[in-house]
């Protein structure tokens, strides 16, 4: 009874229906939060005394950089569930997260590069934080490529799961890179354990956007998982019923 909820998540039909409802809620909530956080950050947060207005890139860069790492961690949890419990839905989660995680990582690298130009005078340096984030992007790409190269989805899931778990080692390297090495990249803007170094008028909109981007990521992953589920379960009676209804 205690594990019933866990096994329910393993049922494709149950997941498809529940995810559809959650997706709708997540979509609208994230849209509202991102709109509020972005308008607040771009127009109403005060100018930074050192960086001027260029610091406003933080309201996009930090949420997507957080997500790039959090999505890899979520993919690692999915890989563990797949390898231990052989739950198909975990494999589909891994497949969805890889593409969306790569996109957020690329966006973090791109927005960071643009922010770097007015702040450091260059788009790119082989700095520990930037390099470890670039490795994260390559890890995501390797996973997408590996899956595409194996025809059998079960085999692809296992191999990708192992690679995901090996790549987890990069996450603490990214997090502590600004402490372990001398880097141009500034330390974390927000920490759970410490008072923010920025005034509240700067970090509150950042927090709103971080929450909004996390929810939009959940919205995107659920949407992608539902699409993949229809393809993989196309021979199931519930998908046939679904098609009849549409």
């Amino acid at each position: 009874m205690r594990w019933r909820w866990f096994h329910q998540w393993g049922s494709p039909r149950w997941f498809y229906e529940r995810a559809g409802r959650w997706q709708l809620v997540f979509g609208w909530v994230s849209l509202g939060l991102i709109a509020v956080g972005t308008i607040w950050g771009l127009g109403f947060a005060p100018v930074d005394y050192q960086q001027g207005n260029s610091y406003r890139i933080i309201y996009l860069h930090v949420p997507v950089a957080f997500l790039a790492q959090a999505m890899y961690a979520a993919m690692a949890v999915s890989a563990l569930v797949l390898l231990v419990w052989k739950m198909k839905i975990a494999d589909i989660a891994m497949q969805s997260i890889a593409v969306i995680g790569f996109t957020f990582t690329a966006l973090a690298l791109g927005s960071g590069a643009v922010w770097g130009k007015p702040t450091w005078g260059t788009y790119w340096v082989w700095d520990a934080r930037l390099t470890s984030m670039l490795i994260l992007a390559f890890l995501y790409l390797a996973l997408i490529g590996l899956r595409a190269s194996i025809r059998d989805p079960d085999q692809a899931g296992k191999v990708c799961g192992i690679l995901v778990l090996v790549g987890v080692v990069n996450l603490p390297i990214i997090k502590y890179s600004v402490e372990w090495w001398n880097t141009l990249h500034q330390p974390a803007s927000l920490k759970l354990t410490e008072k923010p170094t920025m005034p509240a008028s700067m970090w509150i909109p950042l927090l709103v956007n971080i929450l909004g981007y996390y929810i939009v990521a959940a919205y995107l992953v659920l949407g992608s998982m539902r699409a993949i589920l229809v393809e993989r379960e196309r021979r199931s009676s519930w998908v046939k019923e679904l098609v009849d209804r549409v």
Binding site: N53, S54, R56, I57, S111, V114, W115, K117, S224, A227
Partner: peptide, 26 residues
């Protein structure tokens, strides 16, 4: 956003484009 509008706006246009693109692909 003097003098940084040319850095800030493209980032947000790209970001919104990416979010819209991912939604459309799904």
């Amino acid at each position: 956003m003097a003098p940084h509008g040319s850095y800030v706006w493209p980032v947000y246009i790209l970001g919104l484009g990416v979010l819209g693109g991912l939604t459309w692909v799904n």
